[in-house]
Design a protein around this nucleic acid. Sequence first.
DNA 1: AGGATGATTCTCT
DNA 2: GAGAATCATCCTT
Length: 190
Amino acid sequence: MSPLARSFYERVTPVVAQELIGCFLHSAVEGEEVAGRIVETEAYLEGDPASHSFKGITARNASMFGPPGIAYIYRIYGIHWCMNAVTGPAGKGEAVLIRALEPVLGEDLMRRRRSLQDRRLLCSGPGRLCQALGITGALNGASLDVPPLWITRNHERVRNVVISARVGVAKGREQMLRFLDRDSQCVSRR
DNA sequence: AGGATGATTCTCT
DNA sequence: GAGAATCATCCTT
């Protein structure tokens, strides 16, 4: 399976967010590879009050303004990590939040990392999937076309992509920028 | 130097 | 459905 190239990410962000549904996210942080099928994403845009890039570049969000095809990873609520794929032209500050996966490879390691058995709960949230894949801030800014963190295309067609309002955002709630696979059991709640 | 604030998750009831 | 956990980051004194 070949990784998605930079040109995939260097496009209109909501389109990238929609086309990432069905693709595979892989990690190999301690040698052992695990992977999941992306079933839920959200787009964060330039001039979008819900986006971390809204108030300009800072130490935390700098990688969001970097070149398309790298990871923007941040800590939230002191505990959890969340992972984005940076999109659009470099300097624009747009990205796609990966919100949920369906486990495909390395379920046992995911279960160990999550201290949890239920397959549907292993990766069904942005913080959960980072824990399951061993993704931390150490990978912030990493390129998404090579190990230890990479995304590959799935040639299987996704039958039903649902579009909805984003989860957990205070501002910009009205925008329909969340994409999910209706047929997956592994999407996040709400 | 201090305070407010999360693109969340888990554990209750 | 509500509330706590928990801390780096950012903005205001």
